[in-house]
Write a protein that binds this DNA or RNA. Structure first.
Lengths: 168, 168
DNA sequence: TTGGAAAGTCAACATAGCTGACATAAAATC
DNA sequence: GATTTTATGTCAGCTATGTTGACTTTCCAA
């Protein structure tokens, strides 16, 4: 499995050796841990967890989204999400409005307080991301996003690609 | 490609807009979920979890490492790790040898069975990583690794950089 | 010889996943 | 209009994995 790519003649596929792939795996692990560390620290002050952060993030990204849409993005059970949403609604960070056309649906929005926490969390996370981007440079950022995109499950990739990407 | 890299001057930092950074954050989230999905599925058959996988991964990477070294890499408490290690040792996947110089230390090694599970998990994870790498191309892979590296906490980055990177 | 580091263990707890069962309201279908 | 399906919410209970705190054992090194 190792040397299969090296016998290709050109060294253009050297990055597919087992060692290279293992390094990529470790890079994902270490980077993801750093990536969540700042928000986690902030969330402790509010007695919320990572699950709350994720919900808040996606509600902010797509205001008015329904519970089932959010479920699909988070990839958890409705029971698990509901526990989180209940506290966020009770604490006045999220508003669940009855759907206009379909009254079974709940359209989720951040309140002013919810938006404020979202900003605090996002600021910290973006600061680290920005520093990493600055350090690595624009070309690296493009590659970074390309690889992550290729790694995603197709359904989520479709959602991901549909989101707006540049400043208004 | 993004338009951010195509122009220079004031627009050369367009990739640092909030929207771009938020996309990067989402990319990390979605990709990381896909990244862990395959091993998680395999681990269910063995009644192990992600924590076992991580321990097995690092013991394989650095055979003979001590418990404290592993703790530093995983970033969890010794109580949490100990629960995992105990089951792995009891099940005959990991061997904890008393240190030769310092007998307080335990040098961790995978047994044949442990190495076999490691391979099964790693094969799945590398397959996805390989597919993503193939799809994105060598230049993207370089960028991917650069950004992840820049995102890591310095201590772990040092460990990460010290690991061998190419096939022997 | 003693202090402190490395490792292991016990207890108790929290978070956030999960399954299964069930309830309600509204939409969709027959 | 009656029935079925869908979207959501909820209760109960389980599991995995993290946490803190207190304690012991081992044993290196000053």
């Amino acid at each position: 499995m190792e040397s299969a790519t090296e016998t290709h003649g050109s060294e253009s596929l050297l990055f597919l050796t087992d060692e290279q792939l293992r390094k990529g795996i470790e890079a994902m692990f270490f980077a993801y841990r750093a990536f969540t560390a700042d928000p986690d620290r902030i969330l402790e002050n509010y007695e919320y967890g990572r699950a709350h952060h994720r919900a808040i993030h996606f509600i902010n990204r797509q205001p008015g989204l329904t519970v089932s849409t959010l479920l699909a993005m988070l990839g958890v059970t409705k029971q698990s999400l509901n526990r989180v949403l209940r506290t966020l609604v009770a604490d006045g960070l999220v508003e669940a409005r009855v759907g206009r056309q379909d009254k079974r649906e709940r359209n989720l929005h951040l309140t002013a307080r919810g938006a404020s926490l979202e900003r605090e969390l996002s600021d910290a996370q973006r600061a680290r991301m920005r520093a990493a981007y600055r350090n690595a440079g624009p070309a690296a950022v493009t590659g970074f996003r390309q690889v992550l995109e290729a790694m995603m499950d197709p359904d989520l990739r479709r959602y991901y690609q549909s989101m707006k990407d540049s400043a208004p």
